[in-house]
Each structure stands twice: as C-alpha cells, then as structure tokens.
C-alpha cells in the first residue's frame, strides 16, 4: 500500500508540475477514447464524463470521447471497442470486463502502437498472461467487499451493531465477475468471525428482487447482515427487512444493511441511519488518471510498474456529510435530491 500511496502522490505532483498548456509535438491534437461499460443508465457515468471534461480543460491539446451503451453485453462492448480502435485514436481507456473477449482487439491495438490503460476492472490474470496495457487505474472489487466486511466486524466488536451470524450478498448480476469478487471479499471478512455466508442472485427487476430476498430472509431467519452489491438495491433490501419487522436500521439489534458506491442513494442511506456503511472506489480518479497516464506515456514514455488503486474508501456516519457535499458538487443539488429514493 505504501508503494501505491507513493505512486498516487507522484501522480498528483506531476499533475501540478507539468505545463498545463502542453501542445502535441506535431501540433495536432491528441484524441483519447474511453470505451466504458458504464452507460447513461448508471449515474456513476457522471463522475467519468466530468473527469474527462476537466482533463480536457487542463490539457487543451487533447480531445476525449466517452463511448458506452445502455444495453450492455460483453459482445456489444467488444463491438464498441473495435469501432473505437478502427478510428485510430491516440490512446484507449477500457475496463477489462472479459479478458478473453478483449484480448484480441486490445493486443492488436497495442501492437499497432495505441497505448491502452485499463480502468475500473483489471485483467485478473497473472502478470505474464495479462493484456500488456500501460497500467490499471481503479478499485479492487475484492477489497471493496473485504474492507466493508472488516468495518462491519469492527463496529460489531465495538457494540454498535449486532455480531454477524449470517450474511447474504444480494447480487443483481450472477455473471458479473466484479460483483462476485465483492461478495467473495465480504465472505472472507465475515468468515473470520464465523458468520455463515450466502450469495443470492436477486436480479435487477425491483419487484422480482424483493420477492426473492423476502423468500431468502423467511427461510434463513438467522440472517442479520445484507450486503447489496449495488447502491440502488439497498433501499429494496431495507424495505423488505423493514416489512418483515427485522429492524433494518443501524443499531445494535435486528438486520444491518451494507452497500457500495458513493451515489446519493448510498450516502443518504448512511446519513439517514438505514445503511451502516458504503464505499467509494474513486470514480472521478478513474476517469481522470487514465487520461493523464495515456498523455504522459505518449509524451514522456512514463509507465507505472504497479496497478494504481483508487479505493476503497469507507463512507460511514462520520464522513457521510462530507461525501454528500462532494457528490452534490458532481451531480448538482437538484439531481442529488431527486436520486435520493429513500
């Protein structure tokens, strides 16, 4: 972690030292594309597009394009990636949602001289086998689950919340490797205190998800922690537990809800006492830092020797107000309030 901190510090330092109006050597503007799995149906896209906008303001010799789809599938993502490569950009930032599916196009892009930075999701294979991108900038899904689990255990030991007996990880996508990793991290953290653990596929449809979760809670009455791997499903989990009289607010009895993300729903869940904690994986940095590394790689040949982790940071009742202020700045006051669905 020390090394990562040093790298982050170096990143910040370099950002301030480099001339802000640097021009491409041949006078032509550079063009970077971010081919993302986060579409406009996910409010987290705001962090990334805002970061790209701010990057462009700081580096006027670069234009950035954000490409994504709302009807997500790996095949569709690969198609978008191949389209982006065919336009011959100067750099690409892409999440490695599937290392198998992305390997071919990305290796061809890298061999043709286009630098690639992975963001949000890394190639999970060992160093020698993974796609030879410049670096990875993003969170670590396993650490997200593990750190939230460890936080909950520490709070339980302090007597603020119940000791975990059974934990259910409610996931809306059974095939999403990142979500599985979040559950795995939580499972390992909870195993240290002997809690039972189940991963439950609830789906993304709200009524179906509630029906599924209620069935699980009815048949597993010893469940006292619900971990929703998306912020927007936290109110559903809380609502089901509340309807069943399981006392889901944050106190030393009943069910305790944990969730992820720094969106308004998650943060307001913490502030209103419905959710014990959530996390931030540094979405803004995941938009900004890949662009800077592409820029420095092209201009100066810089390439970090280690992945750059931008999270997780635990958001609890102590820092939720600060985060609320920050997120209001990104989403806007009106949008923030509208997106608080509690």
């Amino acid at each position: 972690m020390k090394l990562i901190s040093k790298i982050l510090a170096a990143t910040a330092l370099a950002a301030t030292v480099l001339p802000v109006t640097a021009q491409a050597q041949d006078g032509k503007k550079l063009r970077f594309v971010m081919v993302s799995h986060i579409g406009s149906n996910d409010p987290n896209m705001n962090w990334l597009t805002l970061a790209l906008k701010e990057f462009q303001e700081k580096y006027p010799d670069v234009t950035t394009d954000y490409i994504s789809t709302n009807n997500y599938s790996v095949q569709e993502h690969v198609r978008l990636l191949e389209q982006a490569i065919s336009t011959r950009p100067d750099g690409i930032a892409v999440p490695i949602v599937s290392s198998d599916a992305f390997e071919g196009p990305l290796r061809r892009a890298i061999e043709s001289g286009i630098p690639v930075v992975a963001f949000n999701i890394p190639d999970g294979r060992p160093d020698g086998e993974r796609i030879p991108y410049v670096t990875y900038v993003g969170g670590d899904e396993y650490l997200t689950g593990e750190k939230l689990g460890e936080y909950a255990v520490a709070e339980a030991e302090a007597g603020h919340v119940p000791k975990p007996t059974r934990v259910v990880c409610a996931s809306h996508d059974a095939a999403h490797e990142g979500l599985k990793q979040r559950c795995a991290g939580m499972r390992d953290a909870m195993a240290k205190v002997g809690a039972q653990f189940d991963e439950l596929f609830i789906g993304a449809e709200p009524a179906t998800a509630r029906n599924t979760l209620q069935s699980y809670l009815s048949s597993h009455p010893d469940t006292n922690y619900i971990f929703t791997v998306a912020g927007w499903s936290a109110p559903w989990a809380w609502g089901v537990a509340n309807d069943m009289g399981l006392d889901p607010d944050v106190d030393d009895k009943g069910v305790t809800v944990l969730t992820v993300d720094e969106g308004p729903v998650s943060i307001e869940g913490v502030r209103q006492g419905h959710v014990l904690a959530t996390n931030s994986q540094g979405f803004w940095l995941q938009g900004y830092a890949p662009m800077e590394w592409l820029y420095w790689n092209i201009k100066f040949g810089y390439a970090p020797q280690q992945d750059i982790l931008t999270g997780p940071i635990i958001i609890d009742k102590d820092n939720a107000d600060h985060w609320a202020e920050l997120v209001r700045g990104v989403f806007g006051e009106e949008a923030y309030n509208q997106q608080n669905t509690w």
């Binding site: 579409g39 406009s40 149906n41 996910d42 409010p43 709302n70 308004p264 949008a335 997106q339 608080n340």
Partner: peptide
C-alpha cells in the same frame, strides 16, 4: 421493447427520482 427501455434511460438519465 427497445424503444420504451431507451426512453426510460434517456428520460431518467439513469436514476428514477424519488417519490
């Protein structure tokens, strides 16, 4: 199916507002 779902995405910007 696609058109209506697309309208939901565009209209809401990804998040359905509170009631």
């Amino acid at each position: 199916l696609f058109a209506a779902r697309g309208v939901i995405y565009v209209w809401t910007g990804g998040t359905v507002q509170n009631f």
